[in-house]
Nucleic acid binder design. Structure first.
Lengths: 146, 146
DNA sequence: AAATTAATTGAAAAACATTATCAATAAGGG
DNA sequence: CCCTTATTGATAATGTTTTTCAATTAATTT
């Protein structure tokens, strides 16, 4: 099921601003802020209002078509959603985002925390930060050059 | 080492706004936004500027005396830092925060992600959301009452 | 204990981000 | 192709964070 169908099946229209936002995120490897999205779309010759970007992101996030992530400096950004439960890892150098699936690996941790704190765990936020393959490459080349 | 010493040893003064913010966070079980901190302090008869709250939080966060956390709705809040590496679990009902230590439990997950994505993992953001013991109690009481 | 000095504060303004309002527009069903 | 209604975009309102700078205050020196 593509994103157009998700919109339709939930009673929403496939409008121009929504199309533009999805298209841009589909072609972006890194999280973008609402302002970055707005600016990029204007610069590529499109015309839409900032407000529509906010509204599109709100709706698309609700439908899990896009995800809100936090950069390592705490600033928020939006990336394409992958459907199903997953998490993101962000490159601290070029900001490229990758996703990885599942939460089975957290179940041991969660059980331990439930035992320790007596909280009942319902949900979680997990993001990893690191260096992507391409930036590792660049770094080692620079090192060799010295 | 208490927070006053941490400030001094890093060349910062123990000023009134910083004292007020720390004092409030020490007595709050839930994350507070800058505005909530400012309002609470004014209401308890103190006098300080909003700007000082922002500045105090920025510095205290840098020194790891307070931590920035994300509520399950995505809004940010500040809680007392615990020193050393730790994470937080937040109650979805009363917003009470608890902390749990360590990241050893994540190492298996991290290795797996490194293998899958070829990223080199450097850091992570982990928060759990759930129901605290007191709110579990309340819920089961209400249930029985029906 | 008073004087000195430099970090820190607070008020105001500026900059920036988000949300509300509402008439005009456009998507999708008939 | 028309009709209905969700959606848009412009404007304004609201809210948040940062900048600026003279006045204040914490901590050090005398």
């Amino acid at each position: 099921m593509n994103w157009q169908e998700v919109l339709s099946e939930n009673g929403y229209r496939v409008s121009e601003p929504r199309r533009l936002v999805m298209q841009l995120l589909e072609n972006s490897s890194q999280p973008l802020t609402p302002l970055q999205i707005y600016s990029a779309l204007l610069q590529s010759g499109n015309t839409l209002g900032m407000v529509s970007v906010y509204r599109a992101l709100e709706l698309l996030t609700e439908l899990c078509l896009v995800c809100l992530v936090y950069n390592s400096d705490g600033s928020p950004g939006y990336v394409l959603g992958m459907g199903g439960h997953h998490h993101h890892i962000l490159c601290q150098s070029c900001h490229k985002a990758a996703s990885f699936a599942g939460s089975e690996d957290l179940s041991a941790l969660i059980e331990k925390v439930e035992a320790d704190t007596n909280y009942r765990v319902k949900d979680h936020l997990l993001q990893l930060y690191g260096i992507c393959p391409a930036c590792q490459e660049k770094q080692s080349v620079r090192q060799e050059g010295n």
